[in-house]
């Protein structure tokens, strides 16, 4: 039998968060749930959750689906912050966290 480059360990075991130097932080009071960040994230590190799970000061959107950032895989590229039309995502230095 030959050697084949296959791996049974799922890539979900391979956490890539240590690559990050800045982290995106969503300000849910500005976020309109437009999901543009979710669409643009090149690493599928932005997920979707339902309002009641998060703390939403903005009542108007609190019952809608909301984006959340998976900090296990986010590499801090900043595309979400750059694309957000409402300036609701800030890139914060990891060293300040």
């Amino acid at each position: 039998m030959v050697l084949v480059p296959t791996a049974y360990a799922p890539s979900s075991n391979n956490k890539t968060s240590s690559w990050r130097t800045t982290r995106p932080v969503i300000d849910y009071s500005k976020c309109t749930r437009c999901m543009i960040c979710w669409k643009f994230c090149p690493d599928v590190a932005i997920g979707v959750t339902f309002g009641e799970k998060l703390d939403y000061p903005n009542e108007r959107f609190s019952k809608l689906e909301a984006p959340f950032i998976n900090y296990d895989y986010c590499k801090g590229c900043g595309i979400c912050a750059s694309e957000c039309p409402f300036d609701a995502i800030d890139m914060v230095q990891e060293s300040e966290m």
Binding site: M1, V4, P5, T6, A7, Y8, A9, P10, S11, N14
Partner: peptide, 15 residues
């Protein structure tokens, strides 16, 4: 021998 099997997911040619 190592074809895609939905019951046994694998990574092919990963890092």
């Amino acid at each position: 021998p190592f074809k895609i099997d939905i019951n046994k997911p694998m990574g092919y040619g990963s890092l």
